[in-house]
């Protein structure tokens, strides 16, 4: 396709039109953008980097485990008390573990200059952000989801609570990663972004926490929980559409620190 766009009168006078590309100019091609090429390249790179530094994957999990160990020590080892607290505690700690790992989502790219290269890629930033968030979820949300049942056992979560715990964390941590990407993008150029990131993002996590923890506690008391999971699913769909846009916009701004 050949591009011959005449610009509006505000940006170009008739005078400059005549000095603009004449006949010998090569016609400008509209780039034939393959949406997935940038997504795939970034996904592959990030997942390779993540696997080369496997130790980092374990950190949120160890944090998760240690904090949960604190609960019986701080409150009571009594099974009934723990069972009552389990859904909320596991969810709150999963939320904190996600927050801790979010700081690095764009920061390493910012520090080594690959963020600049992302921003000047002709591929839409939306899909690149999605691919980075997906890798983040695979490296934090998914492992947290998988280890959560062990913590359920430690906090004597009733049997019927495990399925909703896994389901709600699998969906919910995805929402946490997506919303967190906005905060991570906003604070990427700041030297001490970590605490600020938690401050600006945590209030936005409230709905996810409410419905995630409620799904688990409803189930463990024998009530239906599918409604809560459906709402979490709706949050995920909405976050998937909106959050990468906001994060992409935030990156373009905050990279100029």
């Amino acid at each position: 396709m050949t591009l011959r766009i005449l610009q509006g009168p505000s940006s170009m006078t008739s005078d400059s039109l005549s000095t603009a590309p004449a006949t010998d100019t090569a016609p400008l091609e509209i780039p034939d953008i393959n949406l997935w090429s940038g997504f795939a390249a970034t996904f592959k790179r990030d997942i390779t980097v993540a696997f080369r530094s496997r130790g980092d994957i374990a950190n949120p999990l160890i944090f998760f485990l240690i904090v949960i160990t604190m609960v019986p020590l701080g409150i009571s080892p009594e099974r009934d008390t723990l069972a009552l607290l389990a859904p909320g505690m596991i969810w709150v700690v999963a939320l904190l573990a996600t927050l801790l790992s979010l700081d690095g989502l764009f920061r390493t790219d910012y520090e080594d200059g690959s963020l600049e290269q992302l921003l000047i890629s002709p591929h839409p930033l939306y899909f690149i952000v999605i691919s980075k968030v997906l890798v983040h979820w695979l490296m934090t949300g998914l492992p947290l989801t998988i280890t959560a049942p062990i913590l359920g056992v430690m906090l004597s979560l009733p049997n019927q609570g495990y399925m909703p715990l896994i389901a709600s964390l699998a969906i919910g941590t995805g929402v946490l990663s997506l919303i967190g990407a906005i905060g991570s993008a906003l604070t990427v150029g700041l030297r001490k972004g970590g605490l600020l990131l938690s401050l600006i993002i945590m209030p936005l996590y409230v709905p996810v926490l409410i419905f995630g923890a409620s799904a688990v506690s409803s189930a463990s008391e024998g009530f239906p929980f599918v409604g809560q999971l459906a709402i979490l699913g709706a949050f995920l769909a909405m976050a998937m559409i909106l959050a990468p846009f906001a994060a992409a916009g935030a990156l373009r701004i905050s990279v100029n620190g």
């Binding site: 604070t187 700041l190 600020l196 401050l199 993002i201 100029n256 620190g257």
Partner: peptide, 14 residues
């Protein structure tokens, strides 16, 4: 959060 974020940047425009 909005106020803290605003204060964290040195560059006014950003």
């Amino acid at each position: 959060g909005v106020m803290a974020l605003h204060n964290a940047f040195t560059h006014e425009e950003t």
